[in-house]
Lab assay of single mutants.
Amino acid sequence: RPRTAFTQNQIEVLENVFRVNCYPGIDIREDLAQKLNLEEDRIQIWFQNRRAKLKR
C-alpha cells in the first residue's frame, strides 16, 4: 500500500486528540476516521507511530 499523506488539517486534529488521549479506543478512532476521511487502521498506525516518536 502507498504511504498515506496526511493534510495539515488532519495532523492538527490528530495531534489535538493525542494531547488529550494517546491511547484512543476504537470508537474514537472510527469517529476520527469518518471526520477526517481516512481509514481507521491508518489512524491506529498514526497513534502507534506518534507514541513511538514521543518516546524518542
Rank of each mutant, 00 (worst) to 15 (best):
E15A: 01
I11K: 08
L14A: 00
E40K: 03
I43T: 04
R50D: 05
L32E: 01
Q10T: 04
F47Q: 06
G25C: 07
R29C: 12
I28R: 03
I26R: 12
A5T: 15
L38I: 13
A5H: 14
I11R: 05
Q34M: 12
I43F: 04
R19F: 05
L54P: 14
R29I: 08
R1L: 07
K35C: 04
E40I: 08
N37C: 09
I43S: 00
W46S: 04
W46D: 05
E40H: 07
F47I: 05
R3T: 12
Q44D: 12
I43G: 00
R42C: 11
N49T: 11
R56E: 12
D31Q: 11
K53W: 06
N16V: 02
A52V: 06
F18R: 02
N9V: 12
A52L: 05
I26E: 08
F47R: 00
L14S: 02
K55G: 07
A33T: 03
E15M: 08
P2F: 15
D27F: 14
L38G: 00
R42I: 13
V20I: 13
V20H: 11
I11S: 02
K53E: 14
R29P: 02
E12S: 12
N16D: 11
T4P: 13
T4M: 15
N49V: 06
I28P: 02
V13N: 07
Q34Y: 06
R19T: 12
V20T: 11
I11W: 07
T4K: 13
P24Y: 06
F6G: 01
R3H: 05
D41W: 13
T7R: 04
K55Y: 05
Q8I: 05
A52Q: 09
R29Y: 07
R29L: 08
T7S: 13
Q10I: 06
E40W: 00
R19D: 03
T4A: 09
A52Y: 08
I28E: 09
E30V: 09
P2K: 15
R51A: 06
N21T: 09
F6P: 00
I11C: 03
E40R: 09
Q44K: 14
R42T: 14
D41G: 09
I45M: 11
R3F: 15
I45E: 13
N21C: 02
L38Y: 02
Q8A: 14
R50S: 03
R3N: 09
K55Q: 01
I43R: 00
I26G: 07
F47D: 04
I43V: 07
Q34L: 09
K55N: 11
I28H: 07
A33M: 08
A52K: 11
E40Q: 11
T7N: 10
T7P: 03
V17G: 00
N16Q: 11
L32C: 00
T4H: 13
I43H: 04
C22T: 12
D41R: 12
R51P: 00
N16A: 06
F18Q: 00
R42V: 13
P24L: 06
D41H: 11
N37K: 11
Y23W: 11
L14R: 01
N49C: 05
F47W: 00
V17Q: 06
K53H: 06
G25T: 11
Q34E: 10
E30I: 13
L36N: 04
T7H: 07
L54Q: 12
K35G: 03
D27A: 08
F18S: 01
P2M: 15
A5E: 15
F18D: 02
Q8E: 12
Y23S: 11
E12I: 03
I11E: 14
Q44T: 12
A52W: 05
V13W: 04
K35P: 00
L32V: 03
N16E: 10
R29W: 09
V13A: 07
E30M: 09
R42K: 14
E39V: 03
D27I: 05
D27W: 04
Q48K: 13
D31M: 07
A33H: 04
R56V: 09
R51K: 04
Q10V: 07
Q44H: 15
A5S: 15
I45A: 14
F6H: 01
N21R: 00
W46I: 03
N21Q: 09
R50P: 00
R29A: 10
I28F: 02
E30G: 10
L54C: 11
R42G: 06
K55S: 06
T7K: 08
K35A: 09
G25A: 10
D27T: 10
R56W: 15
E39H: 06
E30Y: 04
F18L: 05
Q34G: 09
Y23G: 06
N16M: 08
P2L: 15
Q44S: 10
P24R: 00
E39P: 07
E39S: 12
D41N: 15
L54N: 14
D31P: 03
C22N: 14
N21P: 00
A52G: 08
N9A: 09
F18N: 00
R51S: 05
E39A: 09
V20D: 13
Y23V: 04
N21Y: 04
R50N: 06
D27Q: 14
E15D: 03
G25R: 03
V17T: 09
L38D: 03
F6T: 01
Q48N: 07
Q48S: 12
R29H: 00
A5Y: 15
R42Q: 15
E30T: 13
Q34A: 06
L32N: 00
G25W: 02
G25L: 01
R50L: 01
I11Q: 10
I43M: 04
I45F: 14
I26F: 10
Y23T: 10
C22R: 12
G25P: 14
P24C: 00
N49I: 05
I11F: 03
I26W: 10
D41E: 13
Q34C: 06
L54F: 15
L32D: 01
R51M: 10
E40D: 10
L36R: 00
E40F: 10
I28T: 09
F18M: 00
G25E: 11
Y23K: 08
L32K: 01
V20W: 05
K55P: 11
Q48I: 08
V17S: 07
N16S: 11
I45D: 12
E30C: 11
Y23R: 06
A33N: 03
D27Y: 02
I45S: 13
R29F: 08
V13F: 06
A5D: 15
E30F: 12
K55I: 13
F6S: 01
Q44R: 12
I45Y: 12
L54S: 09
R56G: 13
C22D: 11
D31V: 05
G25V: 00
I43P: 00
I45R: 12
R3E: 14
E12R: 06
T4N: 11
F47H: 05
P24Q: 07
E15H: 05
N37Q: 09
P24N: 02
E15N: 08
R42D: 06
C22A: 11
A52C: 09
I28A: 10
N49W: 05
R19S: 07
K35H: 03
K55T: 01
P24A: 02
V13K: 05
D41L: 07
V17A: 11
L32M: 02
R50H: 08
R3Y: 15
Q48G: 05
D27R: 13
L38E: 04
R50E: 14
A33Q: 15
V20F: 15
L14N: 05
N9H: 13
N16G: 13
V13E: 13
N49A: 14
T7F: 02
Q10G: 04
V17M: 08
L14Q: 00
R3P: 11
E12V: 10
K55W: 04
K53P: 06
R29G: 02
T7A: 11
K55A: 05
R42S: 13
E12T: 12
K35I: 05
N49Y: 02
R3D: 13
V13R: 06
R51N: 10
D41A: 13
E40Y: 04
